[in-house]
Design a binder for these strands. Structure first.
Lengths: 108, 108
DNA sequence: CATCTCCGTAAGTCATGACTAACTGTAAGC
DNA sequence: GCTTACAGTTAGTCATGACTTACGGAGATG
């Protein structure tokens, strides 16, 4: 039951290459859905679906402008990811250092 | 063709919850394959396959001890992820700040 | 009102990948 | 040698999710 502790959904959201591409374009500059779809090799509904996932992961936020929806970066998502990563970063370095120390250095 | 730039495979590797669990256990302390399989609700081959993905993403490294393989953290994977994240972190904050500034604050 | 553009949703297809069972290989202990 | 624990690989099943087409709703413009 210690299984599946609370983890950033952002990790799974950014695993998909198309979604990463969308996210990076939005990071560079806010975009509407059609704008993104025009630049990408997927249909507009596909972009919509990706945006929903990114939004649920709090990686992007939506604002309306008439019938258009402008998507921009939401800092919370990457913030959560960064926290998760930092928790492991120090630990990883420690463990690695410990491994290096406790091992006789031998050249390949 | 600007599509699919070089990105850390670590992102996709850590998207799977089981793999994340394995990674966290290894981060806490080096483990052999059977040890991990005993603690998790999946079979040993499944763990083996997950470890291969984590190894390819440079998130874990393998050392032999007789017939056992000890898996420990490899700093390169999280390092690459951290770099990727940091590239977007500043940008996200800037964009968000700009959005907040350019918007009339109105109470909910 | 009619129409046009914007967008989300529903339904269905198809590929990917997470999993198990069965197998092979290797080191250690008898 | 035989056996036993260790672990990677293969083949096949099954669920997930990324994509499409078709549709429906909301806002602007005539």
């Amino acid at each position: 039951m210690t299984y599946r502790r609370q983890d950033p959904r952002a990790l799974a959201a950014l695993a998909d290459p198309t979604r990463r591409e969308i996210f990076e374009r939005i990071a560079a500059k806010p975009h509407s859905v059609s704008e993104l779809a025009r630049q990408l090799p997927v249909s507009r509904p596909a972009v919509s679906q990706h945006l929903r996932v990114l939004k649920e992961a709090q990686l992007v936020a939506e604002t309306r402008d008439g019938t258009r929806r402008i998507y921009r970066i939401d800092p919370r998502g990457i913030g959560a990811m960064r926290e998760w990563l930092d928790r492991h970063w120090g630990r990883a370095l420690d463990a690695f250092q410990q491994f290096v120390d406790s091992n006789p250095e031998r050249k390949k």
